[in-house]
Simulated scan of single mutants.
Amino acid sequence: MKKIVLIIVIVLVLLPLHLFAGGQKDAADANKYEIVTVVKITGIPWFNRLEEGVDAAAKDLDVNAYQIGPSDADPAQQVKMVEDLISKGVDAICITPNDATALEPVFQKAKEKGILILTHESPDQAGKDVDIELIDNVEFGRHTWDMLVKYMGDKGQYAIFVGGLTVPLHNLWADEGLKYAKEHYPGLELVTSRIPCGEDQELAKQKTLELLKTYPDLKGIIGFGSLGPPGAAQALKEKGLAGKVAVVGNVIPGHAAPYLKDGSMSHGVLWDPKDAGYSLTYVAKYLLDGGSLADLKEIPGIGAVVVDGDVIKVDAMADITKENVDSFGF
């Protein structure tokens, strides 16, 4: 009997200590910044890679950082997710917009709540605190046209794929590239207005098949949106036209490798999305800690930065070819 009483006493003494320790751990977690990245669409290789950067930053910086995104590239779903995060009271929202204009009202709500807004691939976004770009966007657009001409020549018909007609950066690249082509490659003929299919590989394949049928002399496709070029490459393989129509654009190396190696895709251009995920989270914490944007000189592990107003630029553009595609590691 005495033994039972002793056990009960020990349990009663230790239980509060255990609860106190658990409470302390929960409190410590609660004191961490909550930094959420909202991507354009979840579950595709590009944004899976970006999430690796978010997760790495969460560990390195000891913050509660994570990624969410809609099941398809739907601006309304993104807006709803931001509204939910505002209601939750997170510290910072990092976002790659599907539609810059659609997000402006919820960004205003976030600012009224004291929530930081960081964008990626949307340098002209209204309502942001800061935008982070891993490339010079004007140079990226021009370089993509240079690569198209390298593989198809400076005369002939071509088409442009974008993720969506409201996706800020894809359309900026297209705008810059078209201006550049008008001056430097007047022999290029754009067969139709830009086609929104770059976030859906199957749709890009179908659009390419339609283009080939309507424009049998088509010589090139530029794909903005990482699933556009692979979709186009699939269509060319299906029609036995691999290498006959040039396909260039931004892709994930591991995803593009088979198409580059068999010649159905000509050339890829990108930056590492993991670096973007890490950079967004790093800069969010830097600003939450009271850091000055003007004083930011580098992002550890990513590189030196240039601050231009409320836009942070990192020079990380990379070319992807059949010769180097296996060297990227993702």
Rank of each mutant, 00 (worst) to 15 (best):
K3R: 11
V5A: 13
I8C: 13
V9P: 00
I10W: 09
L14Y: 09
H18Y: 14
H18Q: 12
L19Y: 14
A21N: 10
A21C: 04
A21M: 11
G22E: 14
D26V: 00
A27V: 01
Y33H: 02
Y33E: 01
V36T: 13
T42L: 10
I44G: 04
W46A: 07
E52N: 10
V54M: 05
A57M: 02
A58D: 01
D60V: 01
D62V: 11
V63P: 00
N64S: 13
Y66L: 05
Y66M: 05
Q67E: 15
A73F: 14
D74E: 13
D74H: 04
D74M: 02
D74C: 02
Q77P: 01
K80P: 02
M81R: 05
S87F: 06
V90R: 04
C94G: 09
C94S: 12
I95G: 09
A102F: 13
A102V: 11
I115C: 03
E121H: 07
E121D: 15
G127S: 11
K128N: 12
E133S: 11
E139P: 06
F140N: 03
H143E: 14
H143R: 13
V149C: 11
K150V: 00
K150L: 00
Y151W: 13
Y151R: 10
G156P: 01
F161D: 05
V162N: 01
G163I: 05
P168S: 08
H170S: 08
D175W: 00
A181V: 00
A181R: 00
Y185S: 08
T192C: 12
S193E: 14
I195F: 06
C197L: 02
E199Y: 10
E202S: 14
K207D: 01
T208N: 09
L209G: 04
L211H: 04
L211Y: 04
T214H: 04
Y215D: 05
L227T: 12
G228P: 06
Q234W: 07
A235Q: 09
K239S: 13
G240V: 06
A242Y: 10
K244H: 12
V248D: 14
N250F: 01
V251G: 07
A257F: 09
G268D: 14
L270C: 08
W271L: 06
W271I: 02
P273V: 05
S279N: 03
Y282A: 11
K285E: 01
L288S: 03
L288W: 08
D289T: 11
G290N: 01
G291A: 11
L293M: 11
P300R: 09
I302D: 09
A304S: 12
D310E: 13
D310A: 07
A316H: 14
